[in-house]
Design a binder for these strands. Sequence first.
DNA 1: CTGAAAGCGCTTACAG
DNA 2: CTGAAAGCGCTTACAG
Lengths: 334, 334
Amino acid sequence: MVTIKDVARLANVSAATVSHVINKTRKVNPETIARVEAAISSLGYRLNSQARSLKTGSSLLIGVITFATYDPFFSEVLAGIERTAYAAGYGVMLRHAEFNLQAQIDSINLLMGNNIDGLIVNSTTITPEFYELIKQIDRPCLFLEFYDPALPVDSLESNNFAAAYQSTLHLLKQGHRRIGCIGGCAYEQVSVSQRRKGYEKALRDAGIYPRDDYFVMTKYQTAEGYAAFTGLRALPEPPTAVITYSDLLALGALRAAADLGLNVPADVSIIGFDDIELASYTVPRLSTVAQDKKLMGEMAFKQIQRRIARPDLAPEHIVLPTRLVLRESSGPAK
Amino acid sequence: MVTIKDVARLANVSAATVSHVINKTRKVNPETIARVEAAISSLGYRLNSQARSLKTGSSLLIGVITFATYDPFFSEVLAGIERTAYAAGYGVMLRHAEFNLQAQIDSINLLMGNNIDGLIVNSTTITPEFYELIKQIDRPCLFLEFYDPALPVDSLESNNFAAAYQSTLHLLKQGHRRIGCIGGCAYEQVSVSQRRKGYEKALRDAGIYPRDDYFVMTKYQTAEGYAAFTGLRALPEPPTAVITYSDLLALGALRAAADLGLNVPADVSIIGFDDIELASYTVPRLSTVAQDKKLMGEMAFKQIQRRIARPDLAPEHIVLPTRLVLRESSGPAK
DNA sequence: CTGAAAGCGCTTACAG
DNA sequence: CTGAAAGCGCTTACAG
């Protein structure tokens, strides 16, 4: 391995000078700079970030923990985080956390052992134990789609309440009175739980009392979207419209509708959430709530970066707007 | 930060002993071990991996570079890599590489600067410059879905030739004579390029001469699948069946077929590639070539791990089987 | 404008 | 069974 000493020797300067040239941390004679740079490229020298991190306490690394197993929404957010981090000179360490305590402890240890400068957590389920772990790490931390004022960390979420209110209201305006919801996650702090509140508020504002049998809890599996829709339609008074917590759930519902011989949207309306790329290619094309996933990733990193610079400021809670995109899967009630 | 010295002081032993207790690298008096462990937990000590890496030369970190922007296939492979790496005590650093040389150099520098023990590259396009960068890094490296005997690195790919041969043969047996292909990537070394060979071989074996206008090159955008299918059907003698290089492309084609008023599979058959979860939920359900993505990720990491242990052995080239899954989007020719 | 030296938190031969 | 000490590759006050 080529070290700063090798460069120093070849350029006939001290290691300190090489370091200053690399980091531009002090004025150096232009000719010296040229010699150092020549030595660096002729030796193929590469800075050892870990050694630097050991000395400075900053690794230029951020950790990303996701509890959601693979899903198209988080994949895009992750791409946004990574690209933005890279542009700022940061690397990303990824961890798909499991739901048991030991794995959570290990994950935190893995990331902290590599001296991450900040941590982004995306979770649909956060246990009290994980909560405690987060409080102990002394690093800027941002939660995605999770908000608890009691946790002194930054948070970033979509305007889930307003989004669900808006899509439900749209269906009401289209004449639907029996509107179901295929959702997930009951924890108050998990941002998606606000969707149920928006959905129910819209119904109440229209003089409709929300029915418990119209709300189906899932774990975001497409198969559950299928089963939930089938179940809703088997009710004595089946909903004529359904909103969902994700496009994947909506695609499951769309498929179930086809299997039941229902025409979407003539017989039943379906509205998704996320606006994944495929939403424009289903048959029929999916009406959905668009979230700007790349932007979400970008903002998540930038907030962490701000927090690294100013750890003293109070935690911020950022809410991103959503956009109802009407395609073909929703329409007027019969 | 709590260091090994703090632990040593509290446990009344030397730093060396603490290190040996942590790493189990020599026999230590059971009582001493107990004291050290008590000190570790009471102080909340966490090993600094970067300091260890500096000393030992092994970071227990692997790098993953993907050139494919977000796609459901790679997302699952990545999850498989990360989970397997974690189970083996390794962390994963992620980089979405760009297609320009400077970004590629930066990416390698970022990962090498963190002293990664190995590198997994997933690419549908590899430039000669990137090639050179790979040759220079002195670390085990594995290419996913890319194989060049001239590059002395491990490689892991699906049996692309056989898979395309098989799906084309299936369509031929169903009576199709005019079979199109919506593909991508012309580089010989990129594994998917073997699909075209399998497709054309199957045709030739059936006495059919492959037509250039039946093969459409894309960059894997769903929109291109849509456009390609539309274009194929606009030919004077349109294909009655189409295979594609990905399920996303197939979903674009499926949507195009619907817009053309075509019934799938009565009027035209479509077969995808990958078997993403949604393939079971489209209307009609998608026939496709299943790749075991989680397994692919798992094997990729394990191969890197083997290579870290035995860097002296010759590079290996691993080929994974695929499986043709027939659902509803393919059927007999009219 | 430049350098010598200490030290970040570990591991590991060497010595006992 | 255990410890003192050197050193991994950097950065950064201190000194000139």
